[in-house]
Amino acid sequence: MAFEDQLREFINSSVGDAFIREETFRDDLSFFIRPDALVDLCQAFLDDADLDVRYLKDICSVDWYGHDDEMAEGRFEVIYNFYSLKHKYRFFVKVRLPEDNPEIDSLTPLFQSANWLEREVWDLMGISFTGHPELTKILTPDELEGHPLRRDYPLTWEQPVFSWNKDDPPEVIK
């Protein structure tokens, strides 16, 4: 059995109803699942020696703000990039989160590497990870408000550093 089929069967049986759909684009296989099933799926990956999916390559996020067709499914997409060392195969697990209070369970208890990756997603995209030991800013300065990678965050906007002792400081660049 090809590895794709084995993987498909495995994910289908582990997440059950939480499975939404799968997509193949340019040979990259992605599975969309509901967010609540993620941690159990990852635990199942770690427990299964035959699949050998122990390597979480990356976590990243996409903001669909401004794409009305995509917004219906949820504004934020979180992408988990898994790799099987045994089968030399990469695939993606994707979840969609709503615009209000985007929140998902943290993978840090399972994968150490998720610690910084989730902090980065939180810092730049504002998605919070429940159960993360230290969900703080990592790349942007502590004073910076907002999450710069969101599509509604203006590209060249700079937060005023000095208020010039005025209640209403001038906007530097907008």
């Binding site: 990356d58 994968f111 150490q112 590497s113």
Partner: peptide, 8 residues
Amino acid sequence: DAINWSLS
């Protein structure tokens, strides 16, 4: 540990 930390 190297795999768990996703080193490359």
